[in-house]
Measured scan of single mutants.
Amino acid sequence: HTVDVQGVTYHFDNPEEARKFAEEMAKRLGLQVHVKDGRYKVE
């Protein structure tokens, strides 16, 4: 499970961890979480 944050890619084994990380980063950076091709993108 992959999370892209402003061009940096993070990998997680656990989909729940990936989702939480994406939401946390989006909140911290004031950005949105998009799901695209099964990847989380924070932009």
Rank of each mutant, 00 (worst) to 15 (best):
H1A: 12
V35K: 07
Q32F: 08
A18C: 10
K36Y: 05
N14K: 11
V5A: 06
A26P: 00
R39K: 14
K36E: 14
Y10F: 12
K36S: 10
V3P: 00
G38I: 02
V35E: 11
T9G: 06
K27S: 11
V42G: 03
K20E: 13
H1M: 12
V35R: 05
H1N: 12
D37W: 01
Y10L: 05
A26F: 02
V35Y: 15
A22W: 01
V33Q: 02
G38L: 04
K20W: 10
D13F: 09
K20N: 13
P15W: 07
E23H: 14
K27N: 09
H1L: 10
E17P: 05
H34T: 15
L31E: 03
V8N: 10
E17Y: 07
R19I: 07
T9N: 08
P15L: 08
R28E: 10
G30W: 02
E16M: 11
E43T: 10
K41N: 12
E23G: 06
Q32P: 06
K41V: 15
K41E: 14
F12T: 01
G30E: 04
N14P: 02
G7K: 05
A18V: 02
K41C: 15
V5R: 01
V42E: 03
H11N: 11
Y10K: 04
Y10M: 04
T2Q: 13
K27A: 13
G7W: 04
R28Y: 08
V42F: 03
A18T: 03
G38D: 06
H11A: 11
D37Y: 02
P15H: 11
G38Q: 04
L31N: 02
V8M: 11
H11Q: 11
Y40V: 11
V8A: 09
R39S: 14
Y40W: 12
K36M: 10
K27D: 09
V5E: 00
T2Y: 15
L31K: 03
F12A: 01
H1D: 06
G7T: 04
V5Y: 04
N14Y: 10
E17G: 08
F21K: 02
H11Y: 13
G38N: 07
R28C: 15
H1G: 10
F12H: 02
D4M: 07
K27I: 10
L29T: 04
A22M: 01
H11P: 08
G38W: 02
Y10I: 06
Q6M: 14
F12K: 01
R19A: 08
A26V: 01
H11S: 13
T9H: 12
Y10W: 08
V3T: 03
E24C: 14
L29V: 02
M25Q: 11
A22P: 00
T9E: 14
V5K: 01
T9P: 08
E43I: 08
R28N: 08
E16A: 10
E43L: 07
G7V: 01
E43A: 09
L31D: 02
K41I: 15
Y40F: 14
F21G: 01
Y40N: 04
Q6A: 08
L31G: 08
G30P: 00
L29W: 04
E43K: 04
M25R: 05
E23I: 12
M25G: 02
A18N: 00
Y10A: 04
L31Q: 04
F12M: 03
H1P: 09
T9L: 14
E23R: 06
T2F: 15
P15E: 14
V5P: 00
V42R: 00
H34E: 07
Q6S: 08
T9A: 10
D13T: 12
D4C: 08
Q6T: 10
F21R: 01
N14V: 09
L31S: 04
F12Y: 05
D4E: 14
V33A: 04
V42T: 03
D37N: 11
V35A: 06
H34R: 09
K20T: 12
K36A: 09
A18L: 02
A22G: 03
V35C: 14
P15A: 13
V33R: 00
K27M: 11
R19D: 03
F21H: 03
H1F: 12
E24P: 00
D4T: 07
G38R: 04
F21A: 03
L29M: 07
Q32Y: 08
K41A: 11
E17N: 11
D37R: 03
G30R: 05
Q6N: 10
F21S: 01
D13C: 14
Q32A: 14
T9F: 13
L31P: 00
M25L: 07
M25V: 09
V5D: 00
F12V: 02
R19W: 08
E24V: 09
K36R: 12
G30M: 04
